[in-house]
Each structure stands twice: as C-alpha cells, then as structure tokens.
Design a protein around this nucleic acid. Structure first.
Length: 703
DNA sequence: CAGTGAGCGAGCTTCCGCTTGACTT
C-alpha cells in the first residue's frame, strides 16, 4: 500500500458521517487527503442517567458514544499528522453538532487549520466548491441541536417515570412516540364511534351505434328530478322509484364536454415517499426498504468492477436533484424516448416545512445504470426497489402526460314525465409523456380512474337502455393506519426524521402499545390507557402541534434570535410543575383496564385475558389470582386455525384449575399460597436482603 | 427441571437522531 508515501507527505484530514460517502469524497479529492467517517454522533448524553444539570443552566454531561473510542483515537492521530482538518459532516442541525462534538471529543481545537465545509450533493463540483469556501462551526446551529436533544431527553426521562408510577413499570413516553401512539388511539375511537350510513349507487348501461358497430358504456346517475346538486339516494324507496323511472325512460344526449388535462409526474423520492411506495407496491416494511436501500447505496459489484453505489443517500427529506443528475436524465430521455419526452429540467419543491434538505432526493447515481443493465448483479428485492427509484427519478424529468377527458350528459325522461340526468365519463391519453415509463399504484383508499374510452356521440343522439343497476351501499369508517400511512402522517406534521421513521413503529410495538391486525395498527388496552393518561395530564406534549412549535423555536435559536438555555427554561418550568402536580394528584390507572380480553371464556364464566410473560403470550383467567387457569397456546395462532391436535385435552386440563367450578382446585390454590407465604415470611425474617437476590438468581438461571 | 408466566419487600426500567458493524448463539 501507499504507506511510505503517506508518512512522508502530510495528508489533510476530512471527516464525513458515513463510510460510503467517505469513499466517494476520497475519490474526488485524491490522495492528498485522508477521509474518515464519524459513523454518526460520537458523543451524547449518558444512557443510564438524565445527564443534565437542570439547576445549572441545563448544563449537559456528554460522554463518548460506546464503540466510538477507537474511532476518536484514530481521528486524533490523523489530525496530528495533518496540516488542515475539514469537518464535512452533513449540512444540517445534527451534522453541525456532530462536527462540534468531534472537536470536543478528539481535541481538534488545537489544530491550526480547522475548517467546516458543507455540500448538499456528492458531486465532484459541489465538493470542490465547498472546499474552496470553508467557514467556522456555527455555534448557533449547534445550540439549536443541543436544545432539541436536551428537550427530548427531559421529556422522555421525566414523563416515563410518571408512567412507571401511575400506570405500569417499564413503560416509556416521548415527544415522538407518544404522539404516534395517540394518532392510532384517536383513529380507533373514530372507528368505534362511526355510524354507517346507507346510500345507493345507481347507474345505467347504455348502447349506441356508430357505423356498423354497437358500443356499450355505463353512465352514473348525476341529477335527480326535483333535487338540486348531487343526487341524494339514502333509502330503498327512493332508489326503487328512481330505478323504475330509469327503466321506463328514453335517453337523449344533452351535452358533451371535452377538457384537456395535464398530468404531472411525481417528484423524486424522499425517505418517506420511498417507504410509502415500497409498501404499496411490494408490501415492504419501512425497515426492509431501508435495509435494501442501504445495500444499493453502499455499493454493488457490477461484473468485475469495484463496488458501485447505485443510489444516492437514502435518508433525506429533499426532492431536489443535483444539476448533473438533471443533465444526465435529460440526455438519457432524449436518446431513449425521443426529444418530445423532455422539456428541460423539472425542479420540485418540498412540501414539508420542517425539511432540512441536507441531501438530495433518493435517485440513481447514474441514469445510464438502467434496471436492465444492473439486473444480473442484484437480488430480486434489490432490483425491485432500484427499478422503482430509477423509473420515478427519470419519469420526474419527463414531459407531462396529456389526457382528453370527455363528459357526456344524458337526459333520461321517464314515462311519468320525471327527468333525471346520467353522466358518462371517459378519458383518452393523447400524449403519454412520463406515463410511457412509469405510473404507480395510487393510494389504496383513492379511486382509480382508468383509461376508459367512450364511443363517438353527438348532442341529440338517442341511446338505447340495456339495464339499470341500483346497489345498496354503506359508508365505511376511516381505515386503521398502516405503517406507510402513519409515516406519511407523521412527516406531514413534521414529527420524526428520515432516520427514525422506520424505528418509531418498532418502539410503540415493543412497548405493546399497539398490535397489528393484518398490516394495520390497533391500539392495545395498555396503549389506550397510556395515551389517555398522557393526553389528560400533558395535553401540550400530546398535541401534534408540539413538535412544529418546538421547531420554530429551534429556528430562532439557530438564527441567533433566542438563547437556547432560555428556551429550555421556558419549556421546563411549567412542564416540571405539571409533572409534580400529576405525581401528587393523579389517580393510578386501574390495572384491570389494561389487560387485553380474548374471545375465550373461562369455565367459571369470566373472560380469559391475554397476558405476556417472559416466554411470550398466554391466556389466563381474568380473576387471577383467585382462579388460576392458564393456557399457553397463543390466541392469535388459534384464531388462524393453527390449533394443536390435543387442544381439547389441553383446554380440559387447564380448566380443572378453575377455582370457581372446582372447589378442590380452589382449596389447593389456597393451600399453596399459604405455604408460599409462610416460606417467604420465614426467609425474610431470617435474612431480608438475600431474598431479593436469590429471586434474581433464579430468574437468570431460567434464561 | 418441568411445563412456567401475572410488577406491592429491591433495583431496574426511559428519550430522539445520527450512523454501521458483529465477542458468537
């Protein structure tokens, strides 16, 4: 290797956040630079304690992140051998803070030429420009990050213990997870309160002749005689009357309207839209999508070459594309599809206000790496995700599709003189534009307007009725959230970040606040209890606007308009009071309301409840400890039909312990409890302290 | 080892956001 060379010539040190980025940037800069990756934050608050001296202006106690000790030492050493050190971490709040922590942790303050450089895209020119224009660390931006970090710690480490005391030990609360939970609980309430309403969908199948052929098409009821506006048909009597009218009616085309509509391509992917679309198209979890994207980002060996990063960074909130990517896409479209499919670069704007836009959109690193070309080197899941990213990126630069929408109003004059209106719509794609390459599955809740063509008709044409359809329907409650829907909602509210979307769900599932029914979230009784408790006592934190309020304050801190310690003080003073008040006055949440009932009943007539122990879920009687029935089959598994052969026997044996039906079982239970109490009492009086220890030992041995 | 387990004796638990490996089961 170039060992001799590096010890002779001094090499400047550059620090970025990710190793893959370090490789690329290293290639651009050449061998006069050594590029290292910080691998995210290197210092943070301690894990086992608050680490904030609230009384002393919220002074934080930072410690080096475990597993980063050798890295920090390496950076220290490399800095000593360098003339200049460039801090090239991401151009956002967290990136600025990482740079500052690096200085503190690796003693970089002593370095003569310490420079902060930022670039928003990893291209040769962007990196060169950044290095030509270095600056100092922006302490106001760092302070905004510290305020964010400390506020999250204060909220999490103060609220969680309130839950331990008032609800159940080991629970957690936080600025992000608790709002996510509340959204799911609120939706469940909406569903429970929903009252379905009846409505009728009425349409007519019509026929017309054009030339030698006959054409059939469908027209929906659009106006009812004597009603204004959209038709309201909410009962069978009205529906039947209209159906009878339409059955006897004659049909004349009264007007035809044509409208040209442009369909715009969708913007390039951000983390959140990528996760949503991968969920819709492939049913990938957010976590799976991110794992695959990480592989594509880090690099794939294409044939005999060195690994090539196929996509840009996958944790981003930006829809922006680098200039060279725009140029390359335009050139590619021109040759592959023809000049009429491009009309110059299309730029998109982020909708979310909290976006920090430190990176580009998720895009292929080269338009030339078509899915066909890279297919032999990718696994099937990699290829699916890559193809979607490639197509959506290229399509985002293609021309709009032009669609001709036709609406035909048809007067239906019934034999009794009633005149209703039915309407047929059709759309014809005149120019496909981006649709030549990419159309995607829409939201499952939205109706899809497919490409229906209507036959040629003229005003005054008489049409023949084939049949009339009247279908009774009921309005549906809003659907439960899927993972993708939840992520979209959180992003819209500015809650959570690209690097955390996939794990938010994991947190509230791990705490057993929510369950999944198929792929949708349903709150557990525990989750509902926690959400209700927090909403009652800490309504400000449980509000979806809490984070956006925090963000605008952080912006003022970053602009130097507000002192970060002052900001924390303003928040924490009233919050702490609220906590003290709640601890002193709030009732403890009744444990009975927190258990999940199953569909099964105990022999004594009480509901069997689902509990979770060290070994997973099990059923037990709701009247524990009085009744000691337990069954170790999972209720979920049983519901899907995966019943053990000997279920009947298992069930019977279990029920013999029912104290309500079997008095001898009750007696045995009582005797056992008495024996235990005696033993425990004896041990306790002999040596109070070892009792607890021995219990822990058995717990460890059981594992 | 058989067939548990279930937060009231003590001490533990907990946050959000940034980023990848890996003592071996």
């Amino acid at each position: 290797m170039a060992r001799g060379a590096s010890s002779l010539t001094k090499r400047d040190l550059v620090i970025v956040e990710s190793p893959a980025k370090a490789r690329t940037v290293g290639r651009f800069l050449g061998d006069k630079y050594v590029v290292k990756a910080s691998m995210g934050h290197v210092r943070d608050l301690p894990t086992g304690a608050l680490g904030i001296d609230v009384e002393n202006d919220f002074a934080p106690e930072y410690v080096n992140v475990k597993d980063r000790a050798t890295l920090i030492a390496e950076i220290k050493r490399a800095a000593k051998q360098a003339d200049s050190v460039y801090l090239a971490t991401d151009p956002d709040r967290e990136g600025e803070a990482i740079s500052w922590h690096l200085v503190e942790a690796a003693d970089l303050g002593k370095v003569n030429n310490l420079k902060r450089v930022v670039f928003h895209e990893i291209t040769d020119s962007a990196v060169a420009e950044a290095f030509a224009d270095p600056r100092d660390i922006d302490m106001e931006l760092v302070n905004a990050q510290q305020a964010r970090r400390l506020l999250d710690r204060l909220v999490g480490f103060t609220l969680s213990p309130v839950l331990w005391k008032k609800v159940k030990a080991g629970l957690s609360a936080g600025r992000v997870q608790s709002v996510a939970l509340r959204i799911i609980v609120d939706r469940e309430r909406e569903i429970e309160a929903f009252k379905p309403e009846e409505y009728w969908v009425i349409s007519v199948d019509l026929e017309t002749e054009a030339g030698t052929r006959t054409y059939n098409f469908n027209a929906a009821l659009s106006a009812v005689a004597g009603q204004k506006g959209k038709p309201v048909v909410d009962n069978e009597t009205t529906a039947t009357a209209i159906k009878n009218d339409l059955d006897s009616a004659s049909y004349i085309v009264s007007s035809i309207t044509r409208r040209e509509v442009r369909q715009r391509p969708r913007s390039p992917f951000t983390t959140s839209t990528l996760q949503q679309q991968a969920a819709r198209s492939f049913r990938f979890s957010a976590q799976r999508t991110m794992r695959i994207a990480q592989d594509l980002y880090e690099g794939i060996e294409l044939g005999s070459s060195d690994p090539v990063g196929l996509i840009t960074y996958m944790r981003t909130d930006s829809v922006n594309l680098a200039q060279n990517a725009l140029d390359e896409a335009e050139a590619f479209i021109r040759t592959a599809y023809g000049p009429e499919y491009t009309s110059g670069p299309k730029r998109y704007k982020t909708k979310s206000k909290s976006a920090q836009e430190a990176h580009e959109a998720v895009r292929p690193t080269s338009a030339e790496n078509t899915p066909e070309k890279v297919a032999p080197f990718l696994s099937s899941e990699q290829l699916r995700l890559y193809t979607m990213i490639w197509k959506r990126t290229i399509a985002s630069q293609m021309t709009d599709a032009i669609v001709d929408n036709t609406g035909v109003e048809i007067e239906a004059t019934a034999s009794n003189g009633n005149v209703h209106t039915v309407r047929a719509t059709g759309s014809v794609i005149k120019f496909d534009g981006f649709r030549k390459l990419y159309t995607e599955i829409r939201d499952e809740d939205a109706e899809d307007e497919d490409n229906k063509q209507l036959p040629a008709m003229n005003e005054g044409d008489a049409l023949e009725k084939k049949s009339v359809n009247a279908d009774q329907k009921f309005t549906q409650p809003p659907p439960r959230f899927t993972e993708a829907n939840l992520i979209r909602f959180l992003e819209e509210q500015g809650i959570g970040r690209p690097s955390t979307y996939a794990s938010i769900v994991g947190t509230i599932e791990r705490r057993q606040y929510v369950d999944r029914e198929k792929t949708r979230f349903k709150p557990t009784p525990l989750g509902t209890g926690v959400s209700d408790f927090l909403t009652q006592h800490f309504s400000n934190i449980m509000d979806t606007g809490f984070t956006s309020g925090m963000e605008s304050k952080l912006d003022s801190v970053a602009e130097g308009e507000q002192d970060w310690v002052e900001m924390l003080r303003e928040f924490f003073g009233p919050f702490e009071k609220r906590v003290e008040d709640t601890l002193a006055n709030a009732d403890r949440v009744d444990h009975k309301t927190l258990v999940q009932k199953s569909d099964e009943k105990c022999e004594g007539g009480d509901n069997l409840v689902i509990r979770t122990g060290r070994y997973g879920k099990f059923l037990s009687c709701g009247r524990f400890p009085e009744c000691r029935v337990t069954i170790s089959t999972r209720p979920g598994a049983r519901a899907t039909g995966e019943v053990k052969e000997n279920w009947e026997i298992t069930w019977k044996t279990a029920m013999e312990k029912c104290a309500i039906v079997h008095p001898e079982a009750a007696a045995a239970v009582a005797a056992e409890a008495e024996a235990k109490r005696g033993a425990r009492g004896k041990r306790r009086s002999a040596n109070g302290k070892t009792a607890g220890k021995s219990k822990r030992r058995t717990k460890a041995a059981a594992k």
